[in-house]
Write a protein that binds this DNA or RNA. Structure first.
Lengths: 210, 210
DNA sequence: GGTATTCTTGACTGTGCAGTCCACAATAAA
DNA sequence: TTTATTGTGGACTGCACAGTCAAGAATACC
């Protein structure tokens, strides 16, 4: 009997090794789902973008739905990683919050594929409880991360100290998601940026006068 | 030769009349698309909710996509009708704008199917130019309607006169769409309402002190 | 080199689907 | 009553798809 529980340990009789990089494959598949949505992505699409055969995909990741959920989890973890880093590394927390609101504008026209989590919630939320639960947890986590940043901005004197950080975080998140939506409808970049700035100005009042 | 161009005129030899009410059928089909999305709705679903056979559906409305686009157009027209009326009939324009922001809260938990237009944009916007164009036009119209209301609120002294009505309308629309999103993730009603109120308070400053 | 094990490929299967078509039903005019 | 016309329903078709499977390829251990 061999211990296979050690992370990254190979099975005893390691035979033919995988010919693909798991992360590369998952990234390509995530982009495919992101571009086309779940229903509109066929297994043939997944084979094409991953370069793998059906059997390999099934053996490595299970069926289409499992594969989708996996890429979705990977996406939200990665997004929260970015968010965490941006909120933590920006010298002034207020700037991080402004960047958050303006981030939907960066999605260059032509792509405009929005947020994979939001898209998935819209497409599948009504009949897939797993997706819905995941969306709920994701938004809770995002809210908490943003609230921490709001609190820091308050400590730094850039936001009124009497505001409720969590409530403000929810308002900011709603505004950001709304902007992602508008972006998807094909609104031109300038108008989108102006709307983002306008929302930022009203939701992030600057008591010091900058 | 008979003139068939007159609206609602019957052909000369009117034969068997339709056994269904077109509006009822279209409403039922719209609800089906709204509940389940486009891809997740099969022709069998459409037959079930409409009570019609395949042949009848195809003869009356064309294929699935045409039927979908027709219900989508009907939905947006109806929505704009409601919006126009609400914005016009409310004594004080500011109250109408507040109702607009709080409207996502009314969608009772359990339903939470969001906005058909937004859902469709998310599901199909990436690969259906017609849907995308329709979404774009719809948002433009909504923006114009809301901007009119903002201008009225300014004339009534409830909003600062120096704000740009169209810019504020876009911000309000973004906030409203963001709230619809949050509602879809399953956020509880109280939190949702609090977020809506918070957004309304910050986006609709009351110079008079109410 | 032999063997055990895992990975890979693509042909195969069954199913569910959108869309077609035709025989029949129902009605208006003659 | 007959005839022309349109509505209706369901059987039928062809296809695209998700998922299976088995035979062969590639590698680690002996």
């Amino acid at each position: 009997m061999v211990d296979r529980t050690v992370k990254n340990s190979y099975p005893v009789h390691m035979a033919r090794p995988r010919s693909f990089d798991e992360k590369q494959v998952l990234d390509a598949i995530r982009d495919q789902f992101w571009d086309a949505g779940y229903a509109e992505t066929s297994l043939e699409d997944l084979m094409r973008v991953s370069g793998l055969g059906k059997g390999s995909l099934y053996a490595a990741f299970g069926d289409k739905r499992q594969l989708f959920l996996r890429t979705l989890r990977g996406y939200t973890e990665e997004s929260h990683g970015y968010l965490r880093r941006a909120l933590a590394e920006t010298p002034r927390a207020l700037d991080a919050l402004r960047m958050l609101i303006e981030s939907p504008v960066d999605d260059p026209a032509g792509t405009r594929r929005g947020c994979l989590m939001a898209n998935s919630t819209c497409e599948l939320g009504n009949h897939d409880q797993d997706v819905l639960d995941h969306a709920h947890r994701t938004y809770e986590t995002s809210t908490a991360l943003i609230a921490d940043c709001v609190a820091r901005a308050q400590r730094e004197g850039d936001l009124p100290a009497d505001a409720d950080p969590i409530a403000l975080a929810r308002a900011l998140l709603a505004a950001q998601q709304g902007l992602v939506f508008m972006s998807r409808t094909g609104m031109d970049t300038e108008t989108l940026l102006a709307t983002a700035r306008s929302l930022a100005a009203q939701l992030l009042p600057d008591p010091s006068g900058d």
